[in-house]
Design a protein around this nucleic acid. Sequence first.
DNA 1: CTTAGACGGTACCGATCGGTTCCGTCTGTG
DNA 2: CACAGACGGAACCGATCGGTACCGTCTAAG
Lengths: 181, 181
Amino acid sequence: MPTNARQRLLDAAKKLFYAEGIQAVGLERLLADSGVGRASFYRHFASKDDLVVTMLSNYDQTYRTWLTERTTALGGTPLAAFDALIEHAKTSDFRGCAFINAIAEVAEPDSQIRAMANQHKEAVADYLRTLLVEAGYPDDMNLARQLLLLMDGAAVTELYERSDRAARQAKAMAQALLEHT
Amino acid sequence: MPTNARQRLLDAAKKLFYAEGIQAVGLERLLADSGVGRASFYRHFASKDDLVVTMLSNYDQTYRTWLTERTTALGGTPLAAFDALIEHAKTSDFRGCAFINAIAEVAEPDSQIRAMANQHKEAVADYLRTLLVEAGYPDDMNLARQLLLLMDGAAVTELYERSDRAARQAKAMAQALLEHT
DNA sequence: CTTAGACGGTACCGATCGGTTCCGTCTGTG
DNA sequence: CACAGACGGAACCGATCGGTACCGTCTAAG
């Protein structure tokens, strides 16, 4: 019967890997930050890679849940998703998309992380597609992918700019894109 | 009088860091791949960080030169820059933008790499601005930054997709953006 | 009270990290 | 020929990497 060591590890992994990068954070940091013993780590995860993959799977779930809830709260339109992104970009610990950052540093073409990123982005695009349909636009996955490209472009731009400028710009571009459709 | 050890190191750094990531490539790999002795490395660079910064500065120069030449050869219009991006995305060793990948994995907010990335992107945006002016569009840095956001969004999407789809989509979006201006 | 299981702490492992030092070689110049 | 400088190879350094093994503790269930 596991208590909470596993969850503390996942929490620390989510925070540290996102904030500082996967390769930059060693097990020592993870264990110190989570207060979990070294042995307990390997009771719950087969390896550091296992923790990374589990954490990213966790991130996929929590991010999409968050996006859905905030978008709904902000009006439920396609543009509301961009308002959610703007809110996200304003937070002090915002550092773009965890999947994009992960595949930017792992590089291996047949990595499980790449496959997970692909799947994650596909799911987000599909969500944007449902937002488009609900707002009365035609069912168009290509248009949804255009919105996703804008969101990802903004997420990556905020990595070197320190403001929500790119997110607001992406929203404006999305608005123009939807008006001229 | 330096001969060529420094240049071989920079070539290897450019190739390996871009292909596999900065943290993933150790000095051993750099030295083995370039054929440079360990001592010679430190005769030319103060540290690995120094090599990284020098290599990125080199990348900024060569990338912008390449972009200018290809864009000019492809017509010199703003959309020609996207044709250059499509060509780039088709190459087998394409792995997005080196600066974006670098800041995705180094993370430190006051890092020199972040400042260089900011400067690089500003220079590219300024080049896009001149392309807009030459094509008869109003002098509008904001519009140039919109084009850059599309290019960066495509570069990052190609990290987990394996085709030039995102680049072609970004071009289509740029075309729509320019037509409705 | 006793037992089982989850736990944290620690010592330890081989490998590799970035970095320093010394040495022998090779090449071009005076 | 002699000298200087750029070079490659290798030994070595402390630190840290991911991973293994063992131990004592705490807690909940029988």
